[in-house]
Design a protein around this nucleic acid. Structure first.
Lengths: 195, 195
DNA sequence: TTTGATTTTGAGCAACTGTTCAAGTTAAAA
DNA sequence: TTTTAACTTGAACAGTTGCTCAAAATCAAA
């Protein structure tokens, strides 16, 4: 007894997310979004409430997608550290060409949002903390498997990993640095083992 | 034979820079700037040409200020590594409270600008490269003073330093992480020495 | 085939954006 | 004191922004 929704919600969120990831929240206009997802303002606002609402869905989707990629990489390797390295290589080398940005969308959010966008600042912080918790669990596993020393707490490994990963992505965002990706990833993991 | 300029150019650039540093380029409106520097549009555009022009001056000023702080820290310490550590501590611990942002304005620029802002993207890249060159020179000095092994090239030390520093600042931008600053800086420098 | 709840459309609003420029103000030089 | 080039002012413009809402389109149920 009604008209049916004519768009695939997940697909729309994914496409909008690609734009947001590339240009950031502020630099993405609602007209940009309308064109990208091929929806008129009325439909967008009926489905997502606001530009902020759509962005929220998009960044949550991104975080879930990333965690999914990490889980896949971990499943494909016996060693936790090898799984983590495979994930980092996939993101920084394979996906680097086709992804909307070389930077992590979560970190980009962390850079963009200040106290005058409290909702989105909080959301990005929350997603980052959840990712850290997931990483910590993985490093605990690595310690159980005797891959890493237990003198350093798992959460410290997780922090160190994120600092390395974020710093590395930021550096590789500069022009003409692609060739450095491989060696710098090696360096990253050898320094993790030395922690 | 004229009216005199009534504003201190350097002071205006500094104040505008603080706003840009805090909110980013896109989120800072020209009205925000007008209020902050207490100038009317006509004067601003006569002096700086455009919002981009003012931002350019501001980010160049920031880079120079930072390099000045680093030089000061290096002069106050016999050891290059101790000088670098003092600089990092000053930025991440002392200045962290009062600075407009916990993040580096150059890196923030690197995160914000895409190919549709080619001028500012290029400028931020250029300033980052110049900072790397300066850092490389310092690590060369550290090697000459036998503070660091010469097996690793100075430019690799400089890259590693930047990756650590950027990653660390990004991490410390998260809420409730201030207490971690000290230990993480120690960790950073012990890992540099192990490189 | 009609009904009616639901979704889609897109013109358009009010606020904000970066920027311009004619008019006013200033102060050194004549 | 007058002149005049330089600087400041702020109203206003044209374009963009996020968003609304009445009207049109849609389709399952009656």
């Amino acid at each position: 007894m009604a008209n049916k929704i004519k768009f695939e919600r997940d697909e729309v969120i994914r496409t909008a997310g690609q734009l947001f990831w590339q240009k950031g929240f502020n630099a993405t206009s609602t007209r940009d979004l309308q064109n990208a997802i091929n929806m008129r303002p009325g439909s967008i606002y009926a489905a997502f409430g606001s530009k902020e609402g759509l962005y929220s869905e998009a960044i949550k989707d991104y975080a879930q997608l990333m965690q999914g990629q990490l889980i896949t990489a971990l499943n494909e390797h016996e060693s936790v550290l090898n799984g983590l390295a495979a994930f980092v290589k996939k993101v920084l080398i394979e996906d680097a060409q086709c992804a909307p940005s070389k930077l992590c969308m979560l970190v980009k959010a962390n850079y963009e949002f200040t106290e005058d966008e409290p909702t989105l600042k909080l959301l990005s912080t929350d997603l980052a903390n959840k990712f850290e918790a997931f990483l910590t669990a993985q490093f605990e596993k690595a310690q159980q498997y005797k891959e890493l020393d237990t003198k350093t707490a798992a959460v410290e490994y997780a922090r160190y990993f994120q600092i390395q990963f974020t710093g590395l992505r930021s550096y590789l965002n500069r022009p003409n640095t692609h060739a450095l990706a491989g060696p710098l990833i090696e360096q990253m993991f050898s320094s993790i083992k030395q922690l």
